[in-house]
Structure formats: C-alpha cells, structure tokens
Design a protein around this nucleic acid. Structure first.
Length: 628
DNA sequence: CGAGTGACGT
C-alpha cells in the first residue's frame, strides 16, 4: 500500500480536509505572535484569536502565554492561563517559566503544586522550570521533593534536570547534594563544572571552585568568565586579572561578558592602563558596545579617574538606557562635577528615559558634593511627586549627608526624626561625620550615644566620635573612646593605597615596609618633606587621635599609605606623568594639602580616588575646592 | 545548557 493511499483512507496523521482548516490558521497566528515587537501587537492578536474562536486551541494559548511572559506581562499571561479549560502540561510549564522570568518564584512553585494536584503529570521541561524556581528562591525542601518526583517519573538522568538540581543544591549551599549529582555527570563536563564553580564562588569557597576549574577538560569562554567573575565578586581583583591573562595564553577568546567582568576588576583596582587596553580590544574585535559593555566602560573610566574619556564613550554609544545615564550621573558626581551631573539628569529626561531609584541616589549625591542644598531639596521632593518613587534609606542618607556637609546639622537631625523609615547606623554615621567636619561636639555626642546604645556602633563610629573630641581639644575623652574601642576588640580598618605603574598595581599599607624599593621610597619621602617645609608646609596635627608630642604627630602623619604610593609613583615614572592613586579610606586633610603642594612643586597632575570621590590635584589646587 | 552594569555613609 502506498503512502498516498493511506492518506486517502483517513490516516489520523492526515485528518479530513474539513477539520484541517484551522491548521494553517494556527500556524499563521503562531508565527504572527512570535514576530510581535510590542505588547500592544500581542493584545490586538489576542482579540483576533478570540474572534476566530481559537482561544481554546492549546497550541495558540501556549504561544500567547510565552509571548506575554517574554514581554514582562506576567499578569496578562496569568489571565490567559486562567481562561484555559483543562490546561495541559505545556500550558502549566509556559506559565511557570513566565513566573520564573518575572522573579515570582513562589508563584512558580505554587503553580507546579497545583498542576500535580490536578493530576497533570509533569514532564522534563516542567521539572526543569520548577527546579529553576526552587533554586532562585533557595527553596531547598521543595526542591528536594521535586527531585524525588523526578526520580519516581524516571527523569532523574535527564541532563538538563541534573544541571538544575546541581544549581538548586549549590545555590542553597548544600554542596554534598550538589557534588552527588555532579559526580553522575561526565567527568570534566564544562557546563556542569561551570555551575559548580559559580555556586562555590557564591559561598566564597574559592579553593573548591579552583579545584573544579582545574579538572575541566576543555575550558570555554563561559567557564573562564565564571571563574574570573567569581574572583572579582570575592574581591580578588589581581587574581582575576592574572586569570584573564592565562585565558589569553590558552587562546580562548573573551566575549563581551568576559570584558565586562575584567572591566569591573579594573574599576575597583583603578587599573587604568589595562582598562584602556580592554577598550582598545573592544574596538579591535568589534565587540558590540551594548548598554552593559558601555556602562562597564563608563564606570571603569570614571572609577579610574579619566573623566574626559567617560564623556567620549557616552557620546559614542548607540544604545543608552537608564543604567547608562545612572553610570554617567554617579561618575560625574564622584568627580565633583555636580552641575554636569544635573545636566545629564535633565538630558536623560529630554530623551524620554525615566529615572529610577538609583538615578536619584546619583543626583542627590551630586548635590551633596556640590553643596547644592536647595536644588537637592527640590529634586528630593520631585522624586515622589513627579516620578512616584518613594525614598529609600539611601535617599534619606544622601539628604542627611547634603545637609550635614553644609553645616545645617540641626536641620539634618530634624530630617532624621521626620523620616518615614527607621534610621539605621549609616544615617547616623553620615550625621556624625558631618559633626566632625564642623566641630560640633554636642550633636556629635548625642548621635554617637544613639549608635552605641543601639549596639550598632562599629569601629568607624568610635573613630569618628574620638575625632570629634580630638578636634575640640578634649583629649581625655578622645583617649577614653579609643580605649573603649580597643577593649571591645574592634580594629580600625588599615589604610591602604595603590598605584598602577607599568600595568602593575603596587599596594601600600600604612607605614608599609614590604615593597622591594622601600629604601628609595622613604628617601624620596624625606626629601619631599624637606622641600615642602621650605615651601611653608606646616603639618596640621588636629586629626591625630593621641595627644602626642608634636614631632611624633608629624611622623605618624608622614607615613599615611597615600604618601608611600605617591612617593613610589614619583620615582618610578617619567616627569609630568599623571599619577593615579586609589585609597580605601578617605584622604585626611593633611595629606590633602600635602598632595596639593606636591602637584605644584613637581608640576604633575595627581588623581586620588578616595573612599567616596575623586580629587584631581593640579598646580597646587584640588578639584574638590577643599570641600569633601 | 553555564558567565555580566548601575548603588548613600564609614
């Protein structure tokens, strides 16, 4: 019997013509759905589907739910699902996927339970989707139950399910379970290993991650990137850069994700030279300057102190979204370019890009660094009034900082009292630091008391309070606070500065003597001090905690880590080279005035990245205008 | 399949 005869006899594969009429319609509508560019196109198609009586065709409904989910219209997808009669496993899975995509993991898990309750048997895709939800929600118990179900259904050897199981257990920190599943995978499997590496690094198990990484048979770009990113997330920036170099020796091409991770390492280290090289690499290999790569580049240049290049990158970008503008605004604010930051904010509005909560943190921060109190108030009010964004603790923090910096301390204190959220130690810390700045012991003392009584005083609170006392000459109290701090076992974070010379980052701690060229560094520093004295430099001694002899005070100041980095920069670079120093704490006022003079004497530009902003020193002046 | 930005204060 020939094939065509079968068809004529009514093979179920070829249904009679009268009934097959809906099939081309179905195909057409599905492909129309898949080609939608906007949600309103989907909605008009939905209306068409209802007109044609296709709203009960499971294939069409499936596609509708998927398309709505992909357009972030989970509510719409949910409504469509509710109208479906006897939804099958595909419809359930489509909606579970939608919930996962929108971050509603609990809803995803709940829907899966509902499906099982309705006696719809899950398939491998449904299991995969719900496991993803369990992993993201850290729902270990629920995940374990799904694992049991997969075993019963004979699906536990499915490769994709095993991947999701590893991810679930790894994300929950249950590494014994994760290892068990991993052991059943082919040895050195690159994808499975990448999952393990990522999870280990989420929990800071660096050595375990390296162990897995070393046993991977063929490492690809994603695997290398996961390891590099893990180093970055764990603060191991130099190791991240080292691994990036190894990756190239291994002839594995970095892609845009790799570049973003390495750029982030450069940003945090202040490694401008490598950052510039990455920028060059992006252009040379035609890596698309999308908003993520562009944002990372902007962030790198601004955090490495090259604010002019920031503008050039921004101008050269085709895709700009709210995050691009956020990077620009916070970058400009960091460099004390408050007006430019505000202009950027206005430009963003002109482009029709709506600001978000992070935008306002940047803008308020810009006002704070520029002392623009009234504008800050205006923007703070417009945030809720015009954009419907309720202030978060960070925004309140910016306002307290803004008021505190200009010396409106009582106003700042009242502002805290009127906040809708309970103030935290960060808010009080901002006020306390303003009290130090303006030498107000009264408010400073009461704020510090709140912090100590609340049990949320950390070492920085004690140091700030002790500085508030020291500033007004109350040495006894200053010493008492310090003693109390040492008693409670709290240690001051050690000052640390670094400088990039010949593509290498050199790190210096307070009074560091580890550097191979320490003798030349200290010699240069002494020589510098002599010249500075001739220029009329008098070290101000107010910021030292102890009531020491004057000479000792001077010495204690002289070895702040930024001075060591500065000295090293001077001896190891050619004259007129710009020096870029990164410091983990805030620069003290004495080092600040010393660096101003050095920039004048040596005729160098010196850029210092502080804990929260940049100082551009040139010809004896600083871009912060001595207000920071 | 598995990897990614932006974020107050100290």
């Amino acid at each position: 019997m020939s094939y065509s005869t079968l068809a004529v006899l009514g093979n179920p594969l070829f249904p009679p013509k009268s009934k097959s009429k809906s099939s081309p319609d179905r195909k057409e509508i599905i492909s129309l759905l898949q080609r939608c560019k906007h949600m309103n196109q989907v909605q008009s198609l939905h209306a068409k589907i209802i007109r044609k009586g296709q709203e009960h065709d499971p294939f069409v409904v499936f596609e509708l739910i998927r398309v709505c989910s992909n357009f972030n219209s989970i509510d719409h997808a949910s409504k469509i699902f509710q109208h479906a009669q006897n939804p099958n496993v595909y419809l359930y899975t489509a909606l579970i996927d939608g919930f996962v995509l929108s971050g509603s993991y609990v809803d995803a898990i709940r829907l899966f339970c509902e499906m099982v309750y309705e006696s719809v048997i899950p398939d491998a895709y449904a299991i995969t989707s719900v496991l993803k939800a369990c992993g993201s929600q850290l729902a270990f118990q629920e995940g374990k139950q799904v694992h049991g179900q997969a075993l019963k259904l004979g699906l536990s050897s499915n490769r994709l399910i095993r991947m999701k199981l590893m991810e679930l257990y790894g994300k929950c920190g249950e590494f014994e379970d994760a290892q068990q599943v991993y052991a059943e995978m082919p040895e050195g499997d690159v994808v499975a290993s990448t999952i393990m590496i990522t999870c280990y690094l989420d929990y800071k198990f660096i050595n375990e991650a390296i162990g897995v990484f070393n046993r991977v048979l063929v490492r690809d770009t994603v695997c290398w990137t996961a390891m590099i990113d893990g180093f970055v997330r764990n603060g191991e920036f130099n190791r991240a850069l080292e691994l990036f170099r190894e990756m190239q020796e291994d002839d594995v091409r970095p892609n845009e994700v790799t570049i973003v991770c390495v750029l982030s390492a450069c940003s945090q280290l202040g490694a401008l030279e490598l950052g510039r090289w990455l920028h060059f690499y992006i252009e040379k290999y035609g890596i698309k300057l999308n908003h993520v790569v562009g944002g990372a580049l902007i962030s790198m240049y601004s955090r490495c102190g090259d604010i002019d290049e920031v503008q050039r990158v921004f101008d050269g970008m085709k895709e700009r979204d709210v995050t691009t503008y956020n990077s620009m605004i916070s970058g400009l604010a960091m460099h004390g370019k408050s007006i430019e930051a505000i202009e950027m904010f206005r430009g963003m509005m002109k482009q029709g890009i709506g600001p978000n909560n992070i935008t306002f943190i940047g803008v308020l921060n810009a006002c704070s660094h520029g002392g623009l109190v009234e504008l800050g108030y205006e923007i703070y009010h417009s945030m809720t009034r015009d954009y419907g964004i309720e202030p978060q603790i960070e925004h309140y923090g910016c306002m307290v900082d803004l008021l505190g910096r200009v010396g409106r301390l009582e106003e700042a204190y009242n502002f805290i009292r009127e906040m809708k959220i309970a103030p935290d130690h960060i808010i009080f810390g901002a006020l306390l630091s303003a009290c130090k700045m303006h030498g107000n012991t009264e408010i400073g003392e009461s704020v510090a008391k709140i912090l100590v009584d609340g049990g949320c005083a950390d070492s920085s609170t004690y140091i700030l309070l002790s500085n508030v006392y020291a500033l007004s000459g109350r040495w006894k109290e200053a010493a008492q606070v310090r003693a109390k701090m040492e008693e409670s076992g709290m240690l001051k974070e050690p000052g640390c500065s670094s400088i990039e010379v010949n593509n290498e980052i050199h790190e210096f701690l307070l009074g560091d003597i580890r550097h191979p060229q320490r003798e030349v560094i200290y010699k240069k520093l002494k020589e510098l001090n002599r010249v500075l004295k001739l220029e009329g430099y008098l070290p101000s001694t107010e910021m030292v905690l102890h009531d020491m002899e004057d000479e000792q005070k001077e010495w204690a100041l002289a070895i702040h880590s930024e001075r060591l980095a500065l000295s090293y920069g001077l001896i190891s670079t050619t004259p007129h080279t710009t020096l870029r120093i990164v410091k983990n704490l805030r620069v003290c006022s004495d080092c600040h005035s010393m660096i101003k003079l050095v920039s004048k004497i040596t005729r160098r530009k010196i850029v210092v990245r502080d804990r929260n902003r940049f100082h551009h020193f040139e010809n004896g002046a600083c871009s912060c205008g001595d207000y920071w």
